[in-house]
Design a protein around this nucleic acid. Sequence first.
DNA 1: GCGCAAAAGTGGTCAGACCTCAAGGGCCCC
DNA 2: GGGGCCCTTGAGGTCTGACCACTTTTGCGC
Lengths: 263, 263
Amino acid sequence: MRADGTTPKVNRDSTERVISHVRDLIARGELHPGDRLPAERDLSARLGVSRPTIRAGLRALAAMGVVKPRHGSGTYIPEGPPTLVTEPLRFLAALHGLTREEMYEARRVLEVSAAGLAAERASAEHVAAIAEEVASLFASIGDPVQFLVHDIRFHRAVAAACGNPIIASLVEMVAALYYEQRRETAARATDRNLRDAADLHRGIYLAIRKRDADHAKALMNRHLLHSAAYQAEEERPHPLPAGRRKPARKGRGGRVAPARSRD
Amino acid sequence: MRADGTTPKVNRDSTERVISHVRDLIARGELHPGDRLPAERDLSARLGVSRPTIRAGLRALAAMGVVKPRHGSGTYIPEGPPTLVTEPLRFLAALHGLTREEMYEARRVLEVSAAGLAAERASAEHVAAIAEEVASLFASIGDPVQFLVHDIRFHRAVAAACGNPIIASLVEMVAALYYEQRRETAARATDRNLRDAADLHRGIYLAIRKRDADHAKALMNRHLLHSAAYQAEEERPHPLPAGRRKPARKGRGGRVAPARSRD
DNA sequence: GCGCAAAAGTGGTCAGACCTCAAGGGCCCC
DNA sequence: GGGGCCCTTGAGGTCTGACCACTTTTGCGC
C-alpha cells in the first residue's frame, strides 16, 4: 500500500477525488484553457489510485465538457469561449418527451434577453461582428445552406455581444438543438423566405446599434416566433417519439432491447 | 472477428457505442425515468465490449446526469422533473473566471422570464404551491435557515409554474450556484431583512395570481437585483479566486452599487 | 410467522498488459 | 546540406480477470 498515508481512510469515492483534484488545479490557477493535463499514468501515481479510476474521473470531466482527450497526445482543457455541453439537454428532451415548442420558447427567452443586453452594452467590435453577419446573410440569399451558416453566426454574435458569457453559453446550448432540426429543412427555403429573414436580422442589428433595447428584444421575439412557426409548419407530421406520461414502471431488469447482435 | 480485414468499424469509439446504445434504448421508449439499466456485465456481453468500457460510457452518462449509479443495487435513470447537472457550470465559472455578477444576471434573465410566463399560465396547483411557500416565508421570519429553505422553494415553484420544463431546469441549474453562496450568509440576515424579502415574494405571488405578467417580471427583477446587491455587500472582501486572464472590465460597471448604508 | 444471517447480484476498484495514434527526432536518400 | 521517411517515445483506448463494498433477496432456524 502507499506509505504516504495522505488519505488513510478516505478511499471513499476515489473517482470523485480525481475530479476534485482537477477542480483544485483549476481553482489554484495551475490549469487554464488550452493547457494539457498531466498524463493519466502520472495522475495515477500522484493520487495513489489506479489508472482505470483516473480514467473514470477524466471521462466524467470530458462528458461535462471540462476536458477533451486527444488520442496519442494528451488530455486538454478546451480553449475558446465558455461552452456548455448540449448532450445532457438532448437526453433530457428524449427522456421526458420535451416538445419542440418548449425548446423554441426556452431559446426565445434567452435570446430575447440577450438581444436586449446586447443593445445596452455591445462593444464596437461586437456590433461590427453582427453587422458582418447581416451583410453575409444578404449575400447568401439564393444559397439556403450558406444562409443558415450565417444565420447561426448572427445569433451567436448577438449572444456574445450581450457581454455575459454565461448567458451566451446558455443560448448556445439551447440553440444547438434547434440548429440540428433546422439543417434538415433549411434547403427548402425560398429566396423570398430568406429575404424576409435577412430583413428581420437587419432590423435587430439596427436596434442593437441604436442602443434600443426594447426594440431589439421585440424584433428578436418576433423573429424567433416566426421562425418557430415556420419550422413547425415544415415538420408537421412529425411528433416527438417518446411520450411524457408518468410511467413509473419499476420492473427489475429484463427490459433490455432484443439482442441487436452487432452492427 | 472478421477475417477479411475490412476496417472493423466496430473498434471505433467503443465508449461512444455504449452511450449511443443507451440513447437508443431511451429513444425507443424502452427506458424511462425511474427504470434500472441492465447490469454492467450484461451490457458488456450484449455490446461485445469489456466492462471497463461499459463503465466509461456509464460514467459519462452519470456526469451528464442522465443516469445515477447506486452501489450494490444498479444504475438508474433519475425520476422527478427534468434536471440539468450544475457541475459543468461550476467548472466553467472557475476556468474562465466568471464573476458572481454575471451569475446573478443570468439568473435574473431566466427567473424574470419564468415569472412572466408563470403569470400567464400557471395552473391552480402551481399558484397554490407558490402561495404555500409565501406563507411559510412569513412563518419563518426569525429563523433565517428555514427562511432560506422556503425562499429556494418559492423560486423553484415559480420556475415550475412557468410551464416549460426546459426553462425550469435552466433556472435550477443557474440558481444552484447562487444558493451555495447564499447558505453561508443566510444566518446573518436580520428579521427586518427577512420581513422585507417576504413582502417582496408576496408581491410576486400576487402578481402571478392576478395574471399580471409585467408586474410579476418587474417585481422579480427588483427582488433579484436587491438580493444580489445584498449578497455582494455581505461578501465584500471575498473576490473570486481564479482571475480571468484578460480582465476586459466592462466599462459599464456599477451594476451592483456599493450600498453600504443598507443594513 | 418472524427475524436474522448467508448468499447472490451489482457497482467500485485494482493490476498489468497490449493496442492505436500523434509527435519528434534521427536517419537515409536525394 | 536539405528534405522526407521511419522509428522511438509517450499519450490515450481497450481488454482481462480478479477482488472489494454495498444492497437486496433468500432461506434457514427459531
